[in-house]
Design a protein around this nucleic acid. Structure first.
Lengths: 252, 252
DNA sequence: ACACGGCCATGATGCAGATCAAGAAGCGGT
DNA sequence: ACCGCTTCTTGATCTGCATCATGGCCGTGT
């Protein structure tokens, strides 16, 4: 008899893991787009000393859960993570997807408890950055303090873009916008912007975009028919960037 | 011949105003819920020294405009402000309403330019807080630094709630949720939570909630008919708090 | 190899809210 | 007190996406 995937590990606290090893941001190829971006050579070691890494999360494992005490923010090293929040009637609202080099968990600061949950979409390596250490460090490192403010500000503007997308754009526009966003974020990591594998299910995409699975399927089919996309299950190829941008319309 | 209201003052830069007077947060009755909340007696003067106040904004005057250089965040002293962002096809997306004691403008930090615009919904007094000064100050005042992080984090969770509202809730639920939110924020300022005047138009409400004016009108009428609300133009009275909460369903 | 469960695609139908239309009510300006 | 404009309300109709339903596919465990 098999376990239902959703039930795999309702809690996998990162810090309880035994074998932590020295973090080396310097050799991390993400350092240019991740937290260290704001930090000069000499100061980097101080940051490395507070960052914790541990064994990778497996697909569907929880990184943190809404309501639990807030201690760290997290940087994705590899894999992909979804952020979501549970409505009072038990449904899920996906609030974001996080790729390597991106930071999540900052919504927990205001209440000292996580306002959302985060779950690995595939096997993912995560760096945990204890926030009180980070706070102390940033008081003496203006560039780090500024970078943190900027990161949070960025999260705000991203959320505002999603709000706009949800309230003003059609299903086609929403899907096109998401695909372009993923493509751009891939480009930032020097990956292909025209061919990639979606780490999330159609359900997650629909949930994130305020649409049903069926609608996502139909939009993909339609876009495939018009030749702007090649869709093979989770494998996406953007055949006509121009047309896709057109389809996204003027969402951003 | 009369001017169209929308065209009133496309830019009213706060800092160009001549008569600035000493800010006194100490005697401000909002200090308990505003920025000074995090600051002890001795340190407060330093904060007061950097905060600028100037002559009130009139209805429909701009506080800041998307794309313009970011310099300050703003605290509402009196009146009400709407935050919005213009889509590429020229339409407006209202991203939030700000009442006395609330802070706005933090979305400008990430790019050093405002990502959204803000406009007074009625005559409003605003405190401008130059962000570079605030940054410097917060490096030496841990409680202020923390409070700023919390403020931004709060903005993120608020945006996530709106995202959820937009993508999961019906028109009735959205309107009920907004009314309850306003009621709660009134209560925080020791104003009536059951009777108040909406500072914003139906258009703004609809825009914020991802609905049309007509739908807002109909929802108000419906709620009036069932007796949970009394609506007289912008004057709102919540007659059945219980029922309204029910109608908001489990949005939060 | 096969069976089961989760995931995806596609068709048929329904409905909440958009759009279109028209009038009423509030309000600043003269 | 009146005019012109904007805002609000209410009704009639339309539509994009949800919902319901069904079958195919694909990966995983036995």
């Amino acid at each position: 008899m098999s376990m239902r995937l959703q039930d795999v590990s309702e809690a996998a606290p990162l810090r309880s893991c035994t074998h932590e090893y020295k973090v080396n941001c310097e050799t991390c190829r993400l350092s240019r787009i991740c937290l260290p971006l704001a930090i000069n050579h000499q100061d980097l070691e101080q940051l490395e000393n507070i960052i914790q890494r541990s064994k990778p999360l497996q697909r569907n494992e929880l990184l943190y859960h809404e309501g639990t005490p807030f201690q760290s923010i997290y940087a994705v090293r590899s894999g992909a993570v979804k952020g979501y929040r549970t409505t009072s009637d038990g449904r899920e609202q996906v609030t974001g997807f996080y790729f390597p080099g991106e930071i999540l968990g900052m919504d927990g600061i205001s209440n000292n408890s996580h306002a959302s949950s985060a779950r690995a979409l595939e096997t993912s390596a995560i760096c945990a950055i204890p926030f009180d250490s980070l706070e102390r460090l940033s008081a003496s490192m203006p560039s780090l303090q500024r970078h943190l403010f900027q990161l949070m500000s960025r999260e705000i503007t991203d959320d505002q873009l999603l709000i706009t997308l949800l309230s003003k754009n059609s299903a086609d526009e929403r899907v096109a916008t998401l695909l372009l966003s993923i493509a751009n974020r891939n480009a930032r990591r020097n990956l292909s912007a025209s061919q990639f594998r979606l780490p999330m299910s159609r359900v997650d995409i629909g949930n994130y975009l305020g649409l049903t699975v069926e609608t996502i399927s139909r939009v993909f089919s339609r876009m495939q028919k018009t030749g702007m996309l090649r869709v093979d299950n989770k494998e996406i190829e953007i055949l006509d960037q121009e047309a896709l941008q057109q389809a996204a319309n003027l969402a951003a």
